[in-house]
Design a protein around this nucleic acid. Structure first.
Lengths: 246, 246
DNA sequence: ACAAAAGTGTTTGCGTTACACCCATGA
DNA sequence: TCATGGGTGTAACGCAAACACTTTTGT
């Protein structure tokens, strides 16, 4: 009985090895993730960059990245990278695309998958100091290493597409926000200006916000009402065939 | 002089090794591409699948795929895979996304990047027989291995998005086509039906087609005029800020 | 009283949709 | 002559864009 068990285990192991051997002729690759981290300060879109303290390109600005492990998905690697920089969990993260130019990094062949994240900049979180991270205005940030500028361009394009078809803007705002803030956010994302009457009636027609009784008194003497995104209502509408479009 | 040259070379090699050593702590991964190949037969969107003649999942239907080499990009790997199956070069190919679930393939950890291709099914090309490939109707094709069904779903979504913002539909049609064919194509892509008068006036308002003097006599006794996509005009318009939208 | 931001409706124009009949031709 | 698909125009509607004044309140 024991021997038979043994045989069985050995057979399984051998079979697995045999099957895996099929792939041994193919090269393996270093795989990394790089994160484009967006924030919004009330006026402009911001991007969180790190100053590299290691070679190559030490001292230059880059996206935050990391290598993918043997037992993690790209999504979890991107999350891990993000948590190590900001400590924030459960933040909006979307895969963008893969960059595989053979010479994209000078010291080794590294294939990189870009992710973009949306975080509420007003959450008082601690940015891990060891990375020398800094927020930059998306309209004025330094040249980045390798193909990271290209990644940022792709991320902005995707953010615009996503923001026009899904209510992801709220990821960048505090839970409660004013109409003015929401409008400024969309103006920043799409690099346009809108008429506030048209903007508000558009938003109201979507019928996915809750107007609270609270007012934000910081911005004016009169104060402006605070709104919340009604995610439950939104999900209900989606389930009934509603299509978000802004 | 020769010695000095030697020293320089040795130094360079050592430096490279030293730099690469930094990455030796990180795992390497098998990386593949999988291609969703779309065609259009005049009525329905089609997808080209292969019947696997190797384990695992021998005999089941799958997407055409292949591993990425040390000195090729993902784009060129996808192209190589496509050429080996169809012999076709210079076809429309767009990267979709990466699939990295740890257990997505049972015999080894393989991370896969999906691409979708648009080919003109009427080009008389030879499908490489060794792959047991077959065209299926996109509304009625067999269950695929691993996460390939998910890949197809993503590809259809991307195709729809792309077709609504760029004139890629023409990749699926012969160089000369009738208005009816064009309408059928868009109806197949978006799974809707359109009023032909509205469709034609919409297309004409885009002003990117050339009406030839030729008629397609196969479809009716009267015959219907053939059109060509005016790529030059389109590029000109784009350069002047024109935004394609359908 | 005044400065500064909040809040609120109506009109116009354009693009999308709905809709039906005649034409040309081969069989 | 008839059956089949090709080709064409107009009216109604709805959403998006343009546009300006009143309210509130702290200073």
């Amino acid at each position: 009985m024991i021997i038979s068990m043994h045989k069985r285990i050995i057979f399984v192991i051998t079979y697995e090895l045999m099957m895996k051997k099929n792939y041994s002729q193919y090269p393996k690759h270093l795989l990394a993730v790089d994160c484009i981290i967006f924030g919004f300060d009330g006026n402009n879109l911001k991007i969180l960059l790190i100053k590299r303290n290691f070679e190559p390109k030490k001292g230059e600005w880059s996206l935050m990245g990391g290598f993918i492990g043997d037992n993690e998905t790209l999504d979890s690697a991107a999350n891990r990278v993000l948590i190590s920089l900001t400590g924030l969990e459960n933040i909006y993260l979307e895969q963008l695309r893969v960059y595989s130019e053979v010479e994209r990094e000078p010291t080794a062949r590294i294939i990189s998958v870009s992710y973009y994240a949306l975080i509420n900049i007003e959450n008082n979180f601690e940015i891990n100091e060891k990375y020398n991270a800094q927020w930059f205005d998306l309209n004025d940030f330094p040249e980045l290493i390798f193909d990271h500028n290209l990644m940022v361009n792709h991320a902005v394009a995707r953010l615009r597409y996503r923001a026009s078809t899904q209510p992801i803007g709220f990821e960048l705002l505090p839970v409660k926000f004013t109409m003015r803030e929401l409008q400024s956010l969309y103006e920043a994302i799409f690099d346009e200006t809108y008429d506030k009457r048209n903007f508000i009636s558009k938003i109201n027609s979507l019928d996915i916000l809750i107007k609270t009784n609270e007012k934000d008194m910081r911005s004016s003497k009169k104060g402006s009402f605070l709104y919340r995104f009604d995610e439950k209502k939104y999900r209900n509408k989606i389930a009934k065939g509603y299509i978000f479009k802004i």
